[in-house]
Computed example of a mutant assay.
Amino acid sequence: MIIDISHHNDINLHNIDRTKLYGIIVRAYYGLTGEDRNFKKNMQYLKKMKDMPYALYYYSYAKNKEESEKEAIRMDLYLEEASAITGRLPFCVFCDMEDNNNKNSAEHILDSAFSVLNEIAYKNTITFGLYCSESWFNYYYADMWRGLLERYNKAECLLWIAKWNCILPVLRNNIDCHIHQYTSKGTITGYGDFIDKSSILLETLELAQKINKGEYSYRDVPLTGRDETEREDTYMKDYRIADNTFFEELRAEMHSYVNNDFKLGGCQLEEMLNKIFNQKADTYINLAKAKFLPKGID
């Protein structure tokens, strides 16, 4: 699993159980002037957690292209400070875009942010990315996404998508989700409050680990721009989840075990699981198992 933290989580990272923790995403700042008041403290924790990949994000309040560019430029300084404290680079710099409800301006604002973050990531041989909800992405960004990546393709771009209480987001136009924030009410031993938790694709985790060790090169096979014709259909995706922490938590609702490597049935599976979550009915559980899980899995 991946956790993401800000000063809203006054957490001692040295006290938590790291058995199934594969990465930490830390808020660095917000808007044009705000700084997360736990940013430096969290970097100090990560300094002693040398094998733990980490990423940075900022929350955007930008209302136009100019503000968006200025917000993104700030990441250069926070990236420099983070690497100076921890002794290594973050695997990604994310912008959190959820604060503009105008479709036209939202596209221009993201375009402006990516023009900066792409250069920062390329200069440092890391990745850049976007965080938002599934519905936000599908409404504002799905139609422009491939064109955006064609313009800003010096560095690898990751999608970190929030959709709670489901297995995976379903993004329009066959777009990949690399990190899936599946709950805001997760728990972890050593911390007494709720925390955001995400699943990460195995190939994305491997990329993060390479960057953390300073072994990543842009000669490596990219995650984006893959041949989409290999898909069986729009919603069938062969995902390898890096760990089954989320599935273990889901099991309490489903009373079943889900294998780490299987094909998800997209919208149909999502609808089925929503019924399970809402009604916890054995009928739906058995139907979901029979229809979607590999044979021999109970």
Rank of each mutant, 00 (worst) to 15 (best):
residue 95 C to F: 12
residue 54 Y to F: 14
residue 292 F to P: 00
residue 290 A to M: 06
residue 203 E to A: 10
residue 163 K to L: 06
residue 11 I to P: 07
residue 35 E to R: 15
residue 222 P to K: 08
residue 198 S to W: 07
residue 9 N to R: 01
residue 173 N to E: 11
residue 41 K to L: 12
residue 293 L to H: 01
residue 283 T to Y: 14
residue 95 C to R: 09
residue 70 K to N: 12
residue 91 F to I: 02
residue 24 I to E: 02
residue 220 D to S: 11
residue 245 T to G: 07
residue 286 N to M: 05
residue 23 G to S: 11
residue 14 H to A: 02
residue 12 N to Q: 12
residue 292 F to N: 01
residue 75 M to F: 11
residue 19 T to H: 01
residue 232 E to P: 14
residue 230 E to D: 09
residue 123 K to L: 05
residue 101 N to M: 07
residue 163 K to H: 11
residue 276 I to C: 10
residue 162 A to P: 02
residue 187 T to G: 04
residue 229 T to Y: 13
residue 57 Y to L: 06
residue 142 A to M: 12
residue 110 L to I: 13
residue 150 E to N: 10
residue 200 I to F: 07
residue 121 A to S: 02
residue 217 S to P: 07
residue 284 Y to E: 06
residue 174 N to M: 13
residue 294 P to W: 00
residue 229 T to M: 12
residue 207 L to V: 09
residue 83 S to D: 07
residue 34 G to V: 01
residue 250 L to D: 00
residue 226 R to F: 15
residue 181 Q to V: 02
residue 150 E to L: 09
residue 125 T to R: 07
residue 212 N to S: 06
residue 161 I to F: 08
residue 280 K to M: 09
residue 82 A to R: 09
residue 191 Y to I: 08
residue 25 I to G: 00
residue 119 E to A: 03
residue 37 R to T: 13
residue 87 G to K: 13
residue 7 H to G: 00
residue 136 W to E: 11
residue 174 N to V: 05
residue 44 Q to K: 14
residue 174 N to E: 14
residue 90 P to Q: 10
residue 286 N to L: 05
residue 224 T to M: 13
residue 78 Y to D: 01
residue 191 Y to R: 04
residue 90 P to T: 03
residue 79 L to A: 06
residue 189 T to R: 10
residue 101 N to F: 13
residue 129 G to I: 08
residue 276 I to A: 01
residue 178 H to P: 01
residue 222 P to A: 11
residue 256 S to A: 15
residue 280 K to V: 02
residue 133 S to F: 07
residue 65 K to Q: 14
residue 293 L to P: 00
residue 288 A to Y: 08
residue 92 C to I: 06
residue 219 R to E: 13
residue 140 Y to M: 15
residue 224 T to Y: 14
residue 105 S to W: 15
residue 215 E to Q: 15
residue 198 S to A: 15
residue 14 H to Y: 01
residue 61 Y to A: 09
residue 79 L to M: 08
residue 204 T to D: 01
residue 109 I to F: 07
residue 244 N to R: 09
residue 146 R to M: 12
residue 212 N to M: 04
